[in-house]
């Protein structure tokens, strides 16, 4: 299995997709940080500030993020990047079908469930790396912006430990979910459309109609797993962090199991 994962890593790094996805998610994270500062903090600690703070002069004002919750929110700006982890998972497996490289992969690894497990492990690792890259970018970018505004870089850095585990976990789980969906829906375009359609449209409709279902939906589970409320998930109708994690994991593994079973019988012509 180690050999299979190493081979997957060679396959992954020798195509442009993962690098493009990482680049795009970094750009978007940068924009989110920018938006955050334009809005002068999200008021997580004490309400949305009124006027701006021109330049970086003077002592920290309530407009510069300084409460624990504000700083955590700043670091967690990139959390929505889990959608990219999901897409990465989808692409890691569907690219084999798109370019018909799956024939060679199945000749090397004729037990098809092993092929899917190899993809799951690779996607999980890639998801973790993506989370770390985004976190690094947010801490550096957000920290510099914060310092420039008179805030404290080290105060921000100290909140990293509280945010990073949940965020990495969510990225890993969504990358697994992506492989699961891709193993079942091997048509790359169809899989991407289904994933994006689900998160951008379907979830909003379902959550809008039956509000109690939010915590069962993947994005609700993601919010729970990321533990954005620092242990008070139940207050906003979410599972606690490990329940949410297990839920995403279950979604991913169910898809992967069904996908493996379907793949096992599929004729590769």
């Amino acid at each position: 299995m180690i050999a299979i994962v190493r081979a997957e890593w060679i396959k992954l790094r020798t195509t442009t997709i993962p690098w493009v996805l990482t680049g795009v998610s970094l750009v978007i994270t940068g924009l989110l940080i920018l938006v955050y500062f334009v809005n002068h903090g999200d008021g997580g600690g004490g309400g949305r500030g009124g006027g701006g703070t021109p330049g970086g002069f003077g002592p920290p004002t309530p407009d510069v993020p300084h409460t624990v919750q504000q700083l955590r929110n700043l670091i967690g700006r990139g959390i929505e990047g889990y959608i990219f982890a999901l897409l990465l998972g989808v692409l890691i497996i569907t690219v084999e079908f798109r370019h018909k490289t799956v024939t060679t992969s199945f000749l090397v690894t004729p037990r098809r469930w092993k092929f899917v497990v190899g993809k799951l492990i690779m996607a999980g690792l890639a998801g973790a790396v993506l989370a770390v890259i985004i976190l690094t970018a947010t801490v550096l970018g957000g920290g510099l912006a914060l310092s420039a505004k008179g805030g404290s870089f080290s105060a921000l850095f100290h909140q990293l430990g509280a945010v990073a585990p949940g965020m990495i976990l969510v990225f890993v789980l969504f990358a697994l979910l992506g492989v699961g969906v891709g193993s079942l829906l091997t048509n790359q375009v169809a899989a991407l459309i289904v994933c994006l359609g689900w998160f951008l449209i379907v979830e909003n409709i379902i959550g809008g109609i039956w509000s109690g279902t939010t915590k069962w939906l993947p994005s609700g589970a993601a919010a729970a797993a990321a533990n954005v409320t620092a242990g008070r998930n139940a207050d906003i109708g979410l599972f606690n962090w490990w329940q949410g994690s297990l839920l995403i994991l279950a979604y991913g593994l169910i898809f992967a199991a069904v996908g493996s079973a379907v793949l096992a019988k599929r004729d590769i012509t």
């Binding site: 190493r6 060679i10 020798t14 370019h99 060679t104 090397v108």
Partner: peptide, 24 residues
Amino acid sequence: LEATSFHPGRRARDHLKSVAVGAG
């Protein structure tokens, strides 16, 4: 086999390397 393909963006040596590593 016919209808087997390669990822167009991958270099020939990398393709072979991924297969070799996967097969020990």
